[in-house]
Every structure is written in C-alpha cells, then in structure tokens.
Simulated scan of single mutants.
Amino acid sequence: MTRPADSFIIFIARLALAILFLWGGAMKLLGYAGFVGYLNAKGVPYASYAAILATVIELLGGLALVLGVRARAVGFLLAGYAIVTAVFGHDFWNMTQAAAQQEAVIHFWKNVAIAGGFLLLTVTGAGRASIDGLRAPRGGGLRG
C-alpha cells in the first residue's frame, strides 16, 4: 500500500509521462500523412499500419496514464514501445552527419530513460490517485 505522498508523486510522474504521449499522439493524428511518410523513409515495415498502431498506443496509453487505468500493464507496454521507437526512430548508428547523429543519440537514450520510468510504473502501480487505486481492496479486514 502506498502512502498519500507517494501516490501524489506517482500521479505527477504519470502526468509527466502522459503529456509526452498525448502530445505525440495528437501530432501524429494531425499530421498523419507526414507521419506515414516519415515511417516509410525510416524503412518501417507496413508503415501505414504502424502509424495507426503508434497513434493509438500513444493516445490511449497517455489517457490510461492520466486516469491510472491498468497502470502496470500500460507501463510495461509503453516501456516496450519506447524501446521500439528508439531503435526505429533514432537509429544513430545509420547516420553519417555528425550533428544529426548526435541529436539521434540524445533522443535514443531519452527513450531508454522513458522506458525506465515506465518499468518503475510497472512495479509501483498507479498509486491511490487513480482508477486502479479506487478499485483496489483496502486493508484491515479478513480476506476469504
């Protein structure tokens, strides 16, 4: 069981992670054709389907983070998503221009760090300030 202060910090962490994904998903949706073109240029297989999947994951995942719904599963899914996007979207090992390569290195490791945050969420859960927290049984009584 988490203390109220812990739950508040977990809530803030969930919001910080969600902002990135809600914004990214909205931008993908608004610039959908450009996003599909970007995925094609990166050599992502089935780019039109990958674009739909990425947009849905970001929007629904971000919303689930804000609400604290199935946070452990969502955290695990988004950790994997962050790693996949790091590998496909920030492939610095394929770049020859030094400035672009340096920027891609930063974004690659940023995605790895975000995946680490999601793995922590997988372990901690959403905390009390969440739908998951509202559904969790409260201690004190005998369990049958």
Rank of each mutant, 00 (worst) to 15 (best):
R3F: 10
A5W: 04
D6N: 03
F11Q: 06
I19K: 10
G24A: 11
A26N: 13
A26V: 15
K28D: 00
L29I: 15
L30V: 13
G31P: 01
G37S: 11
G37F: 07
V44F: 05
P45Q: 03
A47P: 06
Y49D: 05
A50K: 03
A51V: 13
L53H: 04
T55Q: 02
I57N: 02
L59G: 05
L63A: 15
L65T: 01
G68K: 05
A71C: 10
R72K: 14
V74T: 11
V74W: 00
V74S: 04
G75Y: 02
F76W: 09
L77H: 08
L78N: 03
A79Y: 05
I83F: 11
T85K: 10
A86S: 15
F88N: 04
H90R: 02
F92P: 00
F92W: 02
W93E: 06
W93T: 07
N94K: 15
N94M: 15
Q97A: 15
A98R: 14
A100L: 12
Q102K: 13
I106Q: 08
I106L: 15
H107M: 11
F108M: 10
N111S: 02
N111A: 01
V112K: 05
A113P: 08
I114W: 00
G117E: 13
F118E: 00
L120C: 13
V123M: 13
G125D: 13
G125Y: 04
S130D: 05
L134T: 05
R135E: 13
P137Y: 07
R138G: 09
G139V: 15
G141Y: 06
G141V: 15
